[in-house]
């Protein structure tokens, strides 16, 4: 995660709880699965989200190219950098900030088409995930269609690393404890989440 907020794409479509961002394949090194993004709206409001899906579509040409014995570098670069093959990034909303106040509720309204999406700075990640009592986890746990365990592990890995260097080494433990509390009546889900968290490696 870099220290500054980087533009990663623009909004394709959204609902009150999630959105899909389009970005160029060449910019795909910026967003990461489980990474936190922010979508500034007007009047000092910005939505925080978590990348839960990155989808690379194919088309006829791509399908044709893979039948070739080898794909030369120029063609590879052309397809990555030029061609209008959409890379779609799925983001679920986990909260918002209004006039500097962070809330773990869903934003009052979704962002609009072509709104810009940025990565969150470490400061923003610390401020959001360290605020309150992990209320934002609800939004992830509510979504049975997501790879929850992996998403949570990726998020905890990234945010935990930031907290570690920002003076809260116990953050991972705290968030894990909260997950146990939230999921302790669902043995299977909890165990899969904890197994994933068990694979986290913070340095």
């Amino acid at each position: 995660m870099t220290n500054s907020s980087l533009h990663i794409g623009r909004l394709l479509r959204s609902t009150t709880s999630d959105c899909v961002i389009g970005c160029r394949a060449s910019e795909l090194n910026l967003p990461a699965f489980g990474g936190m993004v922010r979508i500034p709206l007007a009047e000092g409001t910005q939505i925080f989200g978590l990348i839960h899906n990155i989808q690379i579509e194919d088309d006829g040409l791509i399908r044709q190219l893979i039948t070739s014995d080898n794909v030369p570098p120029d063609v590879l670069l052309d397809n990555r950098n030029n061609r209008n093959v959409p890379v779609e990034i799925g983001v679920i909303f986990i909260g918002y900030q209004q006039d500097g106040v962070i809330s773990h509720l869903l934003p009052p309204r979704p962002p609009l088409s072509l709104d810009e999406i940025f990565t969150c700075t470490p400061q923003e990640v610390v401020a959001f995930t360290g605020n309150g009592r992990f209320g934002y986890l609800r939004h992830i746990l509510r979504r049975d269609d997501l790879p929850q365990a992996e998403l949570l592990a990726a998020h905890i890995q990234q945010a935990g690393q930031i907290h570690l260097t920002h003076g809260r080494p116990d953050w991972v433990e705290a968030v894990t404890r909260e997950l146990v509390t939230l999921l302790r009546d669902d043995y299977d889900r909890l165990m899969s989440v904890l197994s994933a968290i068990g694979d986290i490696n913070l340095s």
Partner: peptide, 11 residues
């Protein structure tokens, strides 16, 4: 161990 400890602490 640390994750198991957290789990056991609550369950």
């Amino acid at each position: 161990p640390e994750v198991a400890c957290l789990l056991h602490g609550q369950t």
